[in-house]
Amino acid sequence: MSNEPLIQIRDMNKFFGNFQALKNINLEVNRGERIVVCGPSGSGKSTMIRCINRLEEHNDGHIIIDGKELTDQIKDINAVRREVGMVFQSFNLFPHMKIIKNLTMAQQLVRNISKTEARKTAMEYLEKVKIPEQADKYPIQLSGGQQQRVAIARALCMKPEIMLFDEPTSALDPEMINEVLEVMVELANEGMTMICVTHEMGFARSIADRVIFMDAGEIVEEAVPTEFFDNPKNERTKEFLSQILTH
């Protein structure tokens, strides 16, 4: 295992037409580090993590994942996607497949794992997210919190090195947020490298190694949680924190 950072983003820019969504992003994430990204809506936080597994294409700069640079070559994109798991705000479970199939399909298709082996892995991760009894249901029959836990399990089945979370609790009813956060905390405690876009500040405070604040496509501030919450430097950070913490 090298000492090189697992994720390196250098001088990255991203445009949607004429609109610059990301400005000169520089970020390094070490193996096992847990990063929380926050910021107002439209600040580019989702776009940034979506660039890491090429759901968005960066326009210039470099993204290097575990020593492999992300280019427009499909071979490089697939190599990076094999190492990066992603959890979406809207779960995105495949509605026409039972839970177990949601978890085994990509293992079989992408990793060429046998059906028996894939099911075994799937059940292990369903146990881990505490809903093994739901294996033979369809996604619509589960609550939002359960669906999101399945989505986490589905990503973990691919044995990723890195997990990206794109506002994983924003679409959930309040009483379901904790069951998802608990799974994420457990994952963090096991040493998974994680980047979480979230506004769950309690979660950020307890598990993040670093909190990153973005505004208008830029990384404005980057600090350890205590420093970030108790002693923010930048005016925009202060304003943002005052808005989300006063209520």
């Binding site: 697939n78 992603m86 992408v110 989505a151």
Partner: peptide
């Protein structure tokens, strides 16, 4: 849904 395609991509499906 576009989200389902993205989930497929993120899992590495062609």
């Amino acid at each position: 849904g576009k989200g389902l395609m993205e989930a497929g991509s993120a899992l590495g499906l062609s």
